[in-house]
């Protein structure tokens, strides 16, 4: 157990976790989630960043000045749509056959 874990702080290597899942990534023009990142500048809570289980949202927590969103790792859970109350997230499922494919579920 590492020192940080001993005092009760934990970090999950989410990129490693996501590496275990299969994706069929659609082209940018068909991205299933579109984020109006201008609206994010005004956001005070960044709940999408904290809620997203796939680290698709990167913002001030990573030292970035503006929201950086990428849909490729999305696990299609819908959390960001629920947590965003700024009207910035346009959420839909990917086109049929695209996106994540679980082999166990």
């Amino acid at each position: 157990m590492s020192e940080t874990q001993k005092i009760g702080l934990f970090k999950y290597d989410v990129k490693n976790g996501l590496g275990l899942v299969g994706y069929n990534i659609d082209d940018h023009e068909f991205a299933h989630i579109i984020v109006d990142i201008k609206k994010c500048d005004e956001c005070s809570h960044m709940m999408c960043v904290w809620g997203c289980p796939a680290q698709c949202y990167n913002f001030r927590d990573q030292g970035l000045e503006h929201m950086k969103f990428q849909y490729e790792d999305c696990v299609e859970c819908g959390t960001c749509f629920i947590l965003c109350d700024q009207g910035a997230v346009s959420w839909n499922h990917p086109r049929g056959g695209f996106g994540i494919t679980y082999s166990h579920g």
Partner: peptide, 28 residues
Amino acid sequence: HTYDLYQAFKAQPAIAALIEGGEAIEYG
């Protein structure tokens, strides 16, 4: 981060003992 909350669960000694020697094969 929600996934860090998961790590805390996974690392709790009683849970860690149950998955010891195992290999994660899917995250979701």
